[in-house]
Amino acid sequence: MKILVPIKRVVDPNIRVRVKSDHSDVETANLKMAMNPFCEIAVEEAVRLQESGKATEVVLVTIGSSLCQDVLRTGMAMGADRAILVETDAVLQPLGLAKLLKAVIEKESPGLVISGKQAIDDDNNQTSQMLAALLGWPQGTFASKLEFDGEQVLVTREIDGGLETVRLRLPAVISSDLRLNEPRYVKLPNIMKAKKKPLEVIKPEALGVDITPRLTILKVEEPAKRSAGVKVANVAELVAKLRNEAKVI
């Protein structure tokens, strides 16, 4: 079974972004970039499935500028076999991304797609579900455990009330939650090896897909700031403040 893992390059999750002064977007120039943390978990899961003999090949795909090659190399250093960059500088939104991914999947015919549940920049949590819809495949979103059973996969999902297990017919789209695994640290020799792995660059036009953004961004603003609070000296003062000042207990 071939596994395709779509990944995204995002601002490092530990960086607090600032809004541009013209309110057109957040400022991302010169910020440290990284693979989206949920995508790292997806890559790790695919690589583990290959290491345990359940997968035959792990193919990464990302969509964006030529700079995105770095996260593809990182994913290949984690163990993926090869990578595809759909190179474009266009503004991308989940529906367009899902359409591009569908076109790539039609060429690659994977038996499983594993992606991250959410990109930590736009926080949409949409692309995997949209991709599954366009392919007519089942979706195992927010997955914390996968178990294969012949032509089916059992997916344990993190839901609001706890955990849910569903059985999906393969091929299927899985989106990873935090507890699916803990991604490995990439070792230097593997980084060197990854440089020699194949990285194919294709253009969206070659896939014949309309990726025009649907939503217009009117403005981006800072959220309302919380006013600075006070430090209390001890528990008695805290309880007094909560009772008499805030009146919340």
Binding site: V11, L95, D123
Partner: peptide, 29 residues
């Protein structure tokens, strides 16, 4: 398109939602 996690409705086609873990709020139409 899908519009995730709206926190405000400006008009029937315009909505506010958080991005970057709520460190920015985007208004989309």
């Amino acid at each position: 398109a899908a519009i995730s996690d709206i926190t405000r409705i400006i008009s029937p086609d315009t909505f506010v939602r958080p991005i970057y873990a709520g460190n920015a709020m985007v208004t989309v139409q």
